[in-house]
Computed example of a mutant assay.
Amino acid sequence: MTTGFERGAAFVDGRFVPVDEARVPITDVGFSRSDVTYDVVGVWDGAFFRLDDHLARFERSCAGLRLRLPFSRAETTEILMRLVRLSGLRESYVDVICTRGVPRDGSRDPRTFENRFYAYAIPYVWILRPEDAETGMDAVIAATVRRIPASSVDPTVKNFHWGDLTKGLYEAYDRGARYPILLDHDGYVTEGSGYNVFAMVGGELLTPEAGALEGITRRTVLELAAEEGIRARSAAISEQAFRGATELFATSTAGGVMPITSLDGEPVGAGLPGQVTSLLRERYWQAHKDPRYLTPVDYGPAPAH
């Protein structure tokens, strides 16, 4: 029996609806001005992975943009649980969004707006599919665009200011690749379009300390590396150091640990996933069975929507 929620479920204006029926007001400045923040948490094998960490970051992002969430942490959790339960998805990409909202009587004063909350659950999204992991990511260091300065748009607050990242994507496609990595205006590595990056440099695993989102997958990798006795830390990474790395990989909720096997058309190391990359990728997916990180979904009868 079909329920209408097989392609996903959304929470809009206090109602649960099939994701294909979800609508955002065209006058919401989250849409018209990108005045919005969001977070994405994965559901894997019927359980949320690091749900509280994602919601804590979401709350910090809202506070950083002076947005007011209409729901408590517990209420938000129940909304997300219900979305996954309605969809029946065992592997899901679950998004929470808070926008500035709709102006009142044409006001441009953000203090007068009623902030809006949206959420949805759809099938799991992959930046790099598991069957492509051995082939890996073909990355380029973008030459035509630099990352938006952190003093203008704080990269630790998840946002939709993707003008620079989208330009980087087009450059990658034009150069026969798919995955751009952007430098900042001082020439240091920041991040890619929806993923953090790591580099093995001088026997140490490094990830950019500035100009990038403080990803939950990134945090997990740093924790797992410490458990494995791998020296790992955040640091400023020059373009030269990045190009000389013996291993490179990217991290994201939408794919976990993803090997980068070529950079600007040249192989990274042997052109295959490296030893450290492979170990951390295996440990990352093993962590999805670790109760420390999991919030199981109750798939009992979904309540009426």
Rank of each mutant, 00 (worst) to 15 (best):
G46F: 05
N115P: 01
R111K: 11
L67F: 09
R129Y: 15
L89F: 04
A121S: 13
W162Y: 13
F71R: 10
P130W: 05
A142V: 07
Y38F: 14
H161Y: 09
E114M: 09
R73H: 15
T76Q: 15
P149W: 04
C62S: 05
A142K: 04
D154C: 01
A143W: 04
R60L: 14
D52E: 15
E134R: 15
R66Q: 11
P130A: 08
S92Q: 05
A63P: 03
A47F: 02
A119H: 00
S32I: 13
L128F: 05
R68N: 14
D138V: 03
D132Y: 06
D28R: 01
L69H: 13
F58A: 02
V102F: 10
G30R: 01
F58H: 03
D52T: 12
P123R: 07
V40Y: 06
V157E: 02
R90F: 03
D105N: 14
I79C: 08
S61G: 15
W126C: 05
F48S: 06
S151W: 13
I127V: 14
R73F: 12
T37W: 01
L55D: 12
T156E: 01
G101A: 03
F113S: 02
R146Y: 11
T156S: 02
H54L: 05
D35V: 01
V43T: 07
R33I: 02
E131I: 05
D95L: 15
Y118H: 01
A47P: 10
T135E: 13
P103M: 08
F71A: 14
S34Y: 03
L65P: 01
V40G: 08
R66T: 14
I141F: 11
D39C: 03
T156Y: 08
P123S: 06
R100S: 07
I141P: 10
D138K: 15
A74L: 05
V94H: 04
I97Q: 02
I122V: 15
P149Y: 06
L55R: 07
V41P: 07
D132F: 07
E75T: 05
R60H: 14
G64W: 00
V145H: 11
P103H: 09
Y38K: 00
R73S: 13
L69E: 10
E75L: 04
D109N: 14
Y124I: 13
Y124W: 12
G46L: 09
I141W: 11
F58Y: 15
F113Y: 15
D52H: 15
V43G: 06
H161M: 00
R66M: 09
A56I: 08
P130G: 12
D39W: 04
P149A: 02
A63L: 10
A139M: 05
